[in-house]
């Protein structure tokens, strides 16, 4: 009887699995591995009878007929595998951001009403964006920090737009575990460094949005934005 293990390849069942993955691709989900199994005793004789022909008909298991069949199985299995992969991709990709989500990339923010020392929070791509109007004192504090005092060293100049040092724009999501830090409203605690304070695990950010204390591993990220006029920015 022609059993899978008899083939020319020690792991022929893997290859023969190709023919099966054609089937698997199409919904049959039985295990490839089961092919190695001996039929249960009751069926042994039955299968021996019904399958003995292959060894008689196509010559020995190592004969030309068998290897031709194995090659066919291999190619068919590979093709079925490719097909299955091609089916899976559209399903996965459908869960990525859709075209309308990607297109809603930009918002405009009017800076006019924001007094020095105050900040506002706007929503961009579903995330809170802090826009803070810094006082002269706050700017100076942010600029005067030596980089060695920072766990995520970054100069203040790199986090603002040149000529607009009074405006700091950051994504208002703590880099630790995603809470929204306090500090944008005048009544909020701003932490020791006068920036933002995350109530979840006590991370503190300075007036440039850089992490100064607590478990947060990185500074608040600066979103892509540009000044359209002196009092208007476009985020995204």
């Amino acid at each position: 009887m022609r059993r899978v293990g008899d083939g020319p390849f020690p792991h022929e069942w893997l290859l023969a699995g190709g023919a099966e993955s054609a089937a698997a691709a199409c919904g049959h989900v039985w295990s490839v591995a089961t092919r190695r199994n001996q039929p249960r005793p009751g069926f042994e004789d039955m299968m021996a009878t019904s399958l003995s022909a292959s060894d008689h008909g196509a010559g020995s298991p190592h004969g030309e007929g068998t290897s031709k069949r194995d090659f066919l199985k291999l190619v068919t299995g590979a093709a079925a595998l490719v097909g299955t992969g091609a089916i899976v991709w559209p399903l996965i990709d459908s869960m990525n951001p859709s075209q309308d989500v990607l297109a809603l990339g930009s918002i405009e923010v009017n800076l006019d009403p924001i007094q020095a020392g105050m900040g506002i929070t706007v929503l961009w791509r579903g995330k809170p964006i802090f826009v803070r109007h810094r006082t002269e004192k706050e700017i100076k504090e942010a600029e005067d920090v030596s980089l060695s005092a920072l766990s995520d060293p970054e100069t203040d100049a790199a986090r603002i737009k040149a000529g607009h040092a009074q405006w700091i724009v950051v994504v208002g999501i703590c880099t630790h575990l995603g809470c929204v830090p306090l500090g944008n409203k005048p009544s909020d605690p701003r932490g020791e460094w006068g920036g933002w304070f995350c109530p979840c695990h006590g991370s503190q950010y300075d007036t440039s949005g850089r992490v100064r204390h607590g478990p947060a591993p990185a500074n608040l990220p600066v979103p892509p934005y540009a000044f359209e006029t002196d009092t208007k920015i476009k985020i995204g």
Binding site: A22, A53, S54, A58, G65, K68, R69, L72, K73, T76
Partner: peptide
């Protein structure tokens, strides 16, 4: 083709 090969025994 695989089917034909396999069933040729039967």
């Amino acid at each position: 083709a695989v089917k034909r090969k396999l069933w040729s025994d039967v």
